[in-house]
Amino acid sequence: MAFDLIESLESLSPLEIEQLWTQEALRRSEHIDAQWVALTGADAVSAKAHALLQ
């Protein structure tokens, strides 16, 4: 299944990939604006990453 997903992505043109990224960015922006997701600051993310790597 994962292989099929990777294979399907390889068949897209650069323009199609750019369009998909744009759609995803807009979707995420809408979720942030609607406050459907909680934002996490860079300092908190960095601290958590460092803690997980130790």
Rank of each mutant, 00 (worst) to 15 (best):
L15G: 12
A49Y: 08
Q35D: 10
I6F: 08
A51P: 00
H50P: 00
E10Q: 12
A47H: 09
E16H: 09
A25D: 07
A34D: 00
A49F: 06
A47I: 00
E24K: 13
T22R: 13
Q35S: 11
A42R: 02
A49D: 03
S46F: 03
S29F: 12
S13C: 01
F3N: 09
L12D: 11
T22H: 12
K48N: 07
S46I: 04
Q23C: 09
L26A: 11
L20G: 05
T40W: 04
M1C: 02
I6G: 00
L15H: 14
A2N: 08
A25N: 07
W36C: 01
F3D: 13
A38C: 01
L53Q: 13
L5C: 05
W36N: 06
Q23E: 15
A42K: 03
A38Y: 01
I6H: 04
D4W: 02
M1F: 06
D4V: 06
G41P: 06
D4C: 02
M1N: 04
S13N: 09
L15M: 13
M1K: 03
A47C: 01
T40P: 03
E7R: 08
S8P: 02
S29T: 08
R28E: 13
A42T: 03
D4R: 04
Q54R: 15
I32C: 07
W21R: 14
D4M: 03
I32L: 11
E16W: 06
T40R: 08
E7A: 13
A44V: 04
E30Q: 14
S13R: 09
A2S: 08
V45S: 02
P14E: 15
A47Q: 12
L15K: 15
L20F: 03
E30W: 07
T40Y: 07
H50E: 05
S8D: 03
A38K: 13
A34S: 02
E10R: 12
K48H: 06
L39R: 08
H31D: 11
L5D: 00
M1T: 07
I17Q: 14
L15P: 04
D33R: 14
L12N: 11
V45E: 01
L52S: 12
H31M: 14
W21E: 15
Q23A: 15
E18L: 13
S13I: 00
A49W: 02
A25Y: 07
A51K: 14
R27H: 13
A2M: 10
A42G: 01
V37R: 00
E10F: 06
A38P: 04
P14R: 11
L5M: 07
I17F: 07
V37S: 01
L5F: 08
V45R: 10
L53P: 02
G41R: 03
I17W: 12
S8N: 02
A25V: 08
D43K: 00
Q54L: 12
L52A: 12
V45G: 05
E30D: 12
E18H: 11
I32A: 09
V37H: 06
I6D: 05
E18A: 15
W36E: 09
A38F: 05
T40Q: 05
